[in-house]
Design a protein around this nucleic acid. Structure first.
Lengths: 343, 343
DNA sequence: CAGAAATTGGTAATCGATTACCACACTCCC
DNA sequence: GGGAGTGTGGTAATCGATTACCAATTTCTG
């Protein structure tokens, strides 16, 4: 292990400068030298040392990414999309999972900074506890938040327009005849949980549908099942349930059905994210699609715009999502046993 | 950006050697110097440059990992487990996805080698096409294959004992009364597809159950659904179906049920992997659990054992899995409408 | 108290690739 | 033929942290 450019230069009978120039093509060399260097490199199996190059160039060609967990299909989709975007410009991804813990997240940020990544893409796990570490990192290197973000808007962010998303979801079930709608989401420790709930409340008020207190747990299938049981045990079943993500929705549908409630005939259910699974679960899920590929492209683009040392207001890019109507919500035209039309 | 150890040394009024020694503690310095250096480093917000350290030490503290795709929950589980293991020794993971394409896989291997990772963990996407790139990489750096592997056994491997796994699955359905069992897996382009099918055939022969030609497609939910339709359209429904992974099994169960076939009353279905989802799908899935955490630990351990330049026979570690009986297979005791007991 | 031994600080080399700068050779034109 | 201009090769500095080696000082011993 360890063929260096010196070895190549010696084998080709030229100086390291010529070898480097021949290989990179950044300055002209005589055809004779070019060929001897190329042959020597091939014969020795020379592979440039990216570590040395990074030290000299003060740029590593790597972007660090931190997400709460790669067990969550939404985050794996985002990670794939970002990786795909970076490949286009020949950069690599150094991926970390914070496991939903701010302390681990802070440690990972530190090691990524020590490794001198050229930029950071992060979905901070906690809207409050993640603030100092994220702000500190943003001072040292271009940083873009995706999906989740910290409070206060101190760093760039790309995500979905939750207000638009929830408005579409609420209007859709209202048009299907729902008069009483409940929101099932996550406890308010991250920005998505908060903005989706407030988006729901605004949309419900505007659409004139009645709401019940929201059910807040976690972004998991288990919580969806649990929430379904709570609904079954309550006194009045709502006409529709809007969920904070698809996993909750899938669990909820399963629990309701097992409790004898028909979906969508008795209750409409709408998810959020449109993870790959959503289209293929038992009744295909009506849900709000996150434009993941666009979000990733926008995040990478923003990363390239940041110039350290040039103060610039934090950018916030909210991309409008699209409702995907499948089979867990009642169609708009049919009254379906209740009076049709919305307020 | 860019406080170096020179800055710290100057601020503390000592030489860079003393600063380095004070910070690393690898040689004693007088308490006075130790304290001045510590204070200077803290005040300047000094963070050692891992790139420079890597160049000097000839070790990066990073392990590269390549899996076919992180959309597959089994691979994300493995990735998480490996990351967890590496954290214990303070190393980081450079993660890549080959997207099931040998050409992309080879490119990723190259860039990881250029970045001078200290080791590689890979699940090669193709049993044949991946051979040259994997073997070449194994010559330059410690390399361990996980789950999938290339043919010929030229590199270390850690995985599950497919023979034992399939024997447990076949014996289980046979004891539930199945006489005719069919295998639904993936086309034979990777090692898992091959060894699971051959494990199935050996187990079926030994248990004395009849088989039909296997149905081979992909390791996806979609193929599971498709295979279920094929089974519904065929002339004789088997008593049991053993699947190559959980996604196939989930799709299959759904298709069979939609076709009016009861699971497990009419047909037992067994999955493979025990991904998180398996326990929570509609009828919780009977499946073979891959000991992911042990596999990851073993892979990391093997990585540490390899000494480059010291030829050593390739290691192969097959860990025995465990059958997890849930509700898609008929219980052993009940005959369930057919004659009980196995051959 | 002289001399050996131990401790600790500093200077400079090292890792590998890139490139500023210099030097040399060659061409062109008056 | 000599001076300007152009093209190309080589030497050595650079990036930042570590450490071999040397030098200086202190401590210990007989």
């Amino acid at each position: 292990m360890g063929v260096t450019i010196h070895d190549v230069a010696r084998a080709a009978g030229v100086s390291v400068a010529s070898a480097s120039r021949a290989l990179s093509g950044r300055r002209k060399v005589t055809p004779d030298i070019a060929e001897r260097v190329a042959r020597a490199a091939a014969e020795l199996g020379y592979q440039p040392n990216a570590v040395a190059k990074a030290l000299r160039d003060q740029t590593t060609g790597t972007i660090g990414m931190i997400v709460p967990g790669i067990g969550n299909p939404f985050f794996t989709t985002i990670v794939e999309a970002v990786e795909h975007q970076l490949q286009q410009t020949g950069r690599d991804l150094l991926l970390c999972a914070s496991q939903y813990r701010p302390d681990i997240e802070a440690r990972r940020l530190d090691t990524l900074l020590a490794r001198r990544v050229d930029g950071l893409i992060i979905s901070p796990c906690d809207i409050e506890a993640s603030v100092p570490a994220v702000l500190n990192a943003a001072r040292r290197v271009p940083l873009v938040q995706v999906d989740r973000h910290i409070e206060g808007g101190g760093a760039d962010w790309v995500g979905v327009d939750d207000d638009s998303a929830l408005a579409q979801a609420v209007d859709h079930v209202a048009e299907g005849g729902a008069r009483r709608v409940v929101f099932v989401g996550s406890r308010l420790m991250n920005s998505s949980a908060r903005s989706r709930l407030s988006g729901f409340e605004r949309a419900a008020a505007r659409a004139g549908v009645a709401t019940a207190p929201p059910l807040l747990g976690e972004f998991t299938l288990e919580w969806g099942i649990e929430a379904g049981r709570l609904l079954l045990g309550g006194d009045a079943m709502p006409d529709a349930v809007i969920c904070g993500n698809d996993q909750i929705a899938v669990g909820l549908v399963r629990a309701l059905r097992m409790g004898g409630v028909r979906v969508p005939d008795d209750v409409s259910v709408v998810g959020f994210d449109d993870v790959g699974h959503a289209a293929m679960c038992d009744p295909p899920l009506t849900t709000v699609r996150q434009p993941v590929e666009e979000m990733a492209a926008e995040a990478v683009r923003l990363l390239g715009q940041v110039r350290m040392g040039a103060p610039r207001p934090a950018q916030r890019v909210a991309i409008a999502p699209q409702l995907v109507v499948r089979e867990t919500s009642r169609p708009v035209t049919a009254g379906g046993g209740k009076e049709g039309g919305a307020a």
